[in-house]
């Protein structure tokens, strides 16, 4: 319930009506949306039990490693009821055709694979918020100062998932493990997304806000 309460508010994409409907507009909209969501996700992280008591450098390292996984999990969760479309925001849904036109097809297909996995499992909101916290705590940053403190954070969110599954899905003792086993695909998809947006950044055609740029640079 703590994690449910910490969930960031809804964000709208608000595509600029003055821009022509092309790939530049789509990518500009996505980068702007990502930047605003990142600000909210930093506020969200601070609400996780134990996160704020980590050193500031360790807080930064976890976020620098996990930010894209967190963004993608949110899109995935919001897309569970959509048909082969990704719901980036309530006012910004992208289907496969649009993804193709925007050069996002590879990423789109990878994210849809996650959507199908979680849809088949019937991913619940409680599980989604806990997985997001696990992705942050388990981000495998190479330069953590206080490994034990990060381990405590991991244990705390891992235990939350196990408790939830024990109470709500006692008939499927492997459900927590099944959820954890989806994380490699999330990591892989996130790496693809970071790579894609780094190439977009190098093209220099899409305006990007500073926080988004900062985090992209942390991964290069």
């Amino acid at each position: 319930s703590h994690l449910l309460g910490a969930e960031p508010e809804k964000v709208y994409a608000m595509p600029d009506p003055a821009l022509p409907d092309d790939d530049i507009k789509a990518l500009t909209t996505l980068c702007d949306l990502a930047d605003r969501e990142l600000v909210l996700n930093i506020g969200w992280a601070k609400h996780l039990p134990g996160f704020s008591s980590l050193s500031l450098p360790d807080q930064m390292r976890l976020l620098q490693s996990a930010w894209m996984e967190i963004l993608i999990l949110r899109v995935v969760f919001h897309s569970l009821d959509a048909q082969d479309s990704l719901v980036f925001a309530e006012d910004y849904v992208m289907d496969t055709e649009q993804a193709k036109r925007t050069g996002l097809l590879e990423l789109h297909v990878a994210i849809l694979q996650l959507v199908r996995k979680y849809r088949a499992m019937g991913l619940e909101r409680e599980e989604f918020v806990t997985l997001k916290a696990i992705a942050l705590a388990n981000s495998d940053s190479m330069h953590i100062e206080d490994v034990e403190a990060v381990q405590r954070l991991q244990d705390c969110v891992h235990e939350a998932l196990q408790d939830y599954e024990q109470h709500r899905h006692g008939d499927d003792p492997r459900r927590a493990g099944k959820l954890i086993m989806t994380l490699p695909l999330l990591r892989q998809t996130s790496a693809k997304a970071v790579q894609y947006f780094c190439s977009i950044k190098q093209d220099g055609r899409i305006p990007m806000h500073k926080l988004f740029l900062e985090l992209l640079e942390a991964n290069t």
Binding site: I42, G43, L56, Q59, M60, Q64, L211, E214, A218
Partner: peptide, 15 residues
């Protein structure tokens, strides 16, 4: 750290 000043600032804010 200088490279990541926005992240740093947002984490320091007490919101």
């Amino acid at each position: 750290k200088e490279k990541h000043k926005i992240l740093h600032r947002l984490l320091q804010n007490s919101t």
